[in-house]
Simulated assay, not measured.
Amino acid sequence: MSTLNLQNITTTVNVGTSEEKKILKNINLNLEDGDFVTLLGTNGAGKSTLLNIINGSLFPTSGKVLLDNQDITHLSEVKRAKYISQVFQDPKMGTAPRMTVAENLLLATQRGQKRRLRLRGLEKHLNELKKETAQLPNGLSDRLNTFVGSLSGGQRQTLSFLMATIKKPKLLLLDEHTAALDPNTSHQLLELTNKTVTQQHLTCIMITHQLKDALKYGNRIIILNNGKIVLDVKNSEKEKLTEDDILQYFSD
């Protein structure tokens, strides 16, 4: 079953000026249920723009975005948040620093619902939230009552990831979500990502600049170059790829 379908997506910025530029050029992409895509490309290739088109923070100049065969091309980012979760590169994004870890998690369970001025029933959810965080790295289960602004970058990014997946999304977008972390913390979060995406059978796109990670994780690899998809392989074809194979797609 198709989860995401992009049809002839083109994105042009600074239209009608001397700075006019096409970022995405006639992108066609179909993600099946459970696809875990690692997305590669040079700086400026259009990776983050592609995710922004999908999450609704940017509308395409032309083309359509379908989710579960429903046209969401002009649906707002807020309305898409009911179905689409995203973790950003910056650990400070995606969490509320003046709320506790538990409050942030409880807020995440209400994604897509009408927001209340006050979170209710926090105490009765603490045991459940402690179980959710018990298997996570960085000791988050012992910091449920800690304000998020006091957490380390790794703890905060792990929390962001749990918030994005605590209520199973139709689509999970990861925009270099480990890039700002130290190597050990990055590895822990990538392993958690792989475990969660696999066990929950999530459909996921993960942007990375690390060739080893792109080859190790996921069942499918896509490479963007100059706004176009230049490689899209999955399963056994992906397993045959080497770093040298990938590098040839990064030339102009």
Rank of each mutant, 00 (worst) to 15 (best):
R143M: 10
R111K: 15
R118C: 09
A81P: 08
K64G: 01
V148P: 03
A164G: 03
L39R: 07
L162D: 12
S18N: 10
G34D: 08
G153E: 08
I72Y: 06
K234Q: 15
H201T: 09
L144P: 01
Q248D: 06
Q210W: 00
E77K: 07
Q157A: 12
K114G: 00
T208R: 05
V37N: 08
N235Y: 10
K21A: 06
N194T: 08
T10W: 04
C204W: 00
L51A: 04
A180W: 00
N184H: 14
Q113P: 00
T10M: 03
E237C: 03
L58Y: 01
P97T: 15
Y83D: 07
G44F: 00
K168C: 01
P60T: 01
L126T: 06
S186P: 03
N127T: 10
N5D: 12
N5F: 02
N145K: 12
N226D: 14
D244Y: 03
E237S: 13
A108L: 06
L202A: 04
F161H: 01
I221E: 00
S152R: 08
Q200E: 09
K130T: 14
I9D: 02
E191N: 14
L126I: 12
V13L: 10
L31P: 12
H201E: 12
M206Q: 15
R118K: 12
Q86V: 08
P137K: 01
D232Y: 06
S2N: 11
L136W: 10
D244H: 10
Q188F: 09
S85D: 02
I205Y: 04
L105I: 13
L75E: 09
L58F: 00
G153D: 13
F147Q: 11
L140H: 01
T49L: 01
T12N: 08
V233Q: 08
I27A: 13
A214M: 11
N104A: 11
L129V: 01
T42Y: 02
N226K: 15
Q248W: 00
F250G: 13
G56D: 11
Q86R: 14
L6Y: 07
T42I: 07
T11C: 10
V15H: 07
L151G: 09
V148M: 07
R115H: 06
G94P: 13
T17K: 07
L136P: 10
D68K: 15
N5Y: 02
V101T: 05
K79M: 02
H201F: 11
S251D: 04
L173Q: 05
L117R: 13
M163K: 14
I166M: 14
R98I: 00
L211S: 06
N14C: 05
N14A: 14
N138H: 15
E128Q: 08
R116T: 12
G56K: 12
I53A: 04
I223G: 02
D68C: 05
N43Q: 07
L171N: 09
L136H: 11
G112P: 02
K114M: 02
I23M: 03
E77F: 03
N14W: 08
P137A: 05
M99L: 15
T109K: 14
Q155F: 12
